[in-house]
Nucleic acid binder design. Structure first.
Lengths: 195, 195
DNA sequence: GTCTATAGGCCGATAGAC
DNA sequence: GTCTATCGGCCTATAGAC
């Protein structure tokens, strides 16, 4: 990966994020050295510090941009039928999680390696996402379409269930994504008492 | 924690496991040094190697004994009503996960730091546990008490949902364990189509 | 923006004394 | 079983040249 000296910030910046995301997800934040990241990018370790203050800032940037991307990607239609909105959320969450499985894994697993203020920032973004699902459940209950004992707990439980798909899904496995979405939607519909 | 020289294998062994479990869960396997573990135990780093071949063996021992404890703790009654068995499983899994949250977190997060053969051993134990739930679902379906599109997927989805309780539960929080069990059982009963 | 070189420090694991 | 001391190595981050 070694290459000649030169300036290519428009390439190196995204590449640092891509390679560190993959390496952190595979081996863990603490286990990956700046030298390994630099090697994967094709620069020397010192060059990384032109893009990031330190290793911690690199991790935070990965998690923060992941959560922002997630929040931006979800487009709800609050005027639609709550069950239709919930089904869309289920399929969206599964697809997004599988499309960004490294970042999803990081966002769950490396929270403890964030400084306290960085942790609070990510937790707040996560709370916003959970609140989006909770809003759908609230509307569904009010419309008499769902029966749920505790909205907040149900939101977290459903998100944990849906995100879990990343732990076993394999491209080209027994089930394709459409079928997986069908099955999880069936489980979700039952869980919220919509049958 | 420093103490005088002496032989106390019956104390040091369990203490090493207890302290390393806690440190690994809090900071991650790779981030914790043998010196830190030794310091928490109250010995010098070299002394640890009288109990474990290396750091990897220590991690494996923690995960393996956790899975064995889990499998030994679950007592099913295959002659009972499948819905009763499922409810017992839900409450058991939540309680066990909360009682062993450090080990649960480790078992999910440090799998990638196991050598390939150690990984296979843990994955096999995990598969045995999932199969126990799958058996309950199978019996429930055959008895016409449950409606599930895919037993294997439903087992993994339910376990992910239930284990998720460890990410937000706080002792003395809004809900006590009994109430949490009620809510998750309600979600589970709906998810398996038992309403 | 990237390089080389390096500072200052911690790492896992082992040897040998007690 | 535990200690002290240490080997050889890798770590993050910075300095200064180009």
């Amino acid at each position: 990966m070694a290459r000649t000296q030169g300036s290519r910030s428009e390439i190196t910046g995204p590449l640092i994020r891509e390679k560190s995301r993959k390496l952190f997800a595979r081996h863990g934040y603490a286990a990956v050295s700046m030298r390994q990241i630099a090697s994967a990018v094709g620069v020397q370790a010192g060059a990384l510090y032109a893009y990031t203050a330190d290793k911690q800032a690199l991790l935070f940037q990965l998690l923060e941009s992941h959560m922002q991307t997630l929040l931006a990607a979800w487009q709800d239609d609050a005027t639609a039928d709550p069950l239709t909105r919930l089904e869309r959320f289920v399929r969206f969450h599964i697809d997004f999680s599988l499309d960004h499985s490294d970042a999803v894994f990081l966002s769950y697993m490396e929270l403890r390696n964030l400084t306290p203020e960085n942790y609070r920032a990510i937790a707040a973004l996560r709370g916003r996402y959970e609140a989006l699902l909770e809003g759908i459940l609230r509307d569904g209950i009010e419309a008499g379409l769902m029966r749920i004992a505790d909205r907040k707990l149900a939101s977290m439980a459903l998100i944990a269930m849906l995100t879990g798909v990343t732990t076993w899904y394999q491209e080209g496995g027994r089930l394709d994504r459409r079928r997986i979405g069908d099955i999880y939607w069936s489980l979700t519909r039952g869980a919220v008492g919509a049958d």
